[in-house]
């Protein structure tokens, strides 16, 4: 075949046919550069979200109120680290290494989910993070597991399986607090009030505003629209909230019998973009934390490498 324009367009056509026929794309397969870059952007952002997400939860690990709660929270945060790791590995198959991704995160070139730029202020926030944030993530990740890139889809399957307990433990915390004393109930409601809208924003801008959506859908990097996923999440969550006596902090919340959807007030997108741009309550803190401990680990990594080299020489 000639290496000319037509051969590229031929490859692109072949590639799109594979996608249309639900054949997974594997690392060594030909892929358009834009597909590769789009995936690197999305997957590394996903990996960074897992890693940065450890911080707001880690904020309570030393203060967990029971031994059981401490073990659960530790195991959950550990899973986040593991999931970040799986995702970094999957992204590495696209030809970028972890070192570079970490640099991009610390330099602000790569993003992570804005939800983690909000602070965890009381113990119920650990419940809300599990119930709402992981709940939203599961809706999203179940969709991503059907995506076109093999390594990403496989990582998602494994992650979805392991995260089965994350949302349940969060809801359990909320349920226990709603069954508890007055100040526990107050904490739970306060927590929902603060996390509700940010969790809706996790699905990203409306379909009409989303810059990457159309191409991502065509390539099956995403297989459902932001608004569809958000609605599914709202419907599930509203019922769960009511079930334990929580009030959704939205005066306009109404049930539409025809569509069987819970309808909400317009989302405050100004707030969303403001946080994405780096002006959320914890943006700087999260990156400063990551950078600080990354730098503090530098001498350890250096020592391990020097040791490994010496070992190799002995052999």
């Amino acid at each position: 075949m000639q290496k000319n324009e037509s051969s590229i367009s031929f490859l692109e056509k072949q590639f799109q046919e594979k996608i249309n026929n639900d054949i997974k794309i594997e690392p060594k397969d030909w892929m358009p550069e834009a597909y590769r870059n789009n995936l690197i952007r999305q997957m590394s952002q996903h990996a960074h979200s897992e890693i940065i997400g450890m911080q707001p939860e880690g904020n309570w690990v030393l203060r967990a109120p029971t031994l059981r709660a401490k073990k659960i929270l530790l195991a959950k945060i550990q899973d986040e680290a593991g999931h970040g790791l799986y995702l970094y590995s999957a992204t590495e198959t696209l030809g970028i290494d972890r070192k570079e991704m970490i640099e991009q995160l610390q330099q602000g070139k790569a993003k992570y989910s804005s939800i983690f730029n909000y602070p965890t202020l009381n113990w119920a926030d650990i419940g809300a993070v599990g119930w709402l944030v992981d709940g939203a993530a599961i809706v999203n990740q179940t969709m991503l597991a059907r995506g076109s890139y093999g390594p990403y889809s496989r990582a998602m399957l494994r992650i979805c399986k392991e995260e089965g307990f994350h949302q349940r433990q969060g809801y359990e915390i909320m349920a226990k607090m709603m069954a508890g004393n007055a100040s526990q109930k107050e904490m739970a409601q306060d927590s929902l009030n603060r996390w509700w809208e940010p969790s809706l924003m996790m699905f990203g801008p409306h379909d009409s505003e989303s810059t990457h959506s159309e191409q991502s859908m065509k390539w099956k990097i995403k297989v459902e629209s932001n608004d569809n996923l958000r609605q599914r999440f709202i419907n599930k969550t509203v019922d769960q909230a009511h079930h334990i006596g929580l009030t959704i902090p939205d005066k306009n919340l109404t049930y539409n019998k025809e569509t069987r959807n819970w309808e909400i007030s317009p989302i405050n997108w100004e707030e969303f973009w403001n946080v994405v741009k780096g002006n959320g309550p914890c943006n700087r803190q999260r990156i400063a934390h990551h950078t600080k401990y990354h730098n503090e680990g530098q001498w350890v990594r250096e020592a391990a490498l020097v040791f490994a080299k010496k070992e190799m020489e002995i052999q």
Partner: peptide, 8 residues
């Protein structure tokens, strides 16, 4: 110079 070790 950062390193993240090699992959296995």
């Amino acid at each position: 110079m950062d390193n993240q070790f090699s992959q296995w």
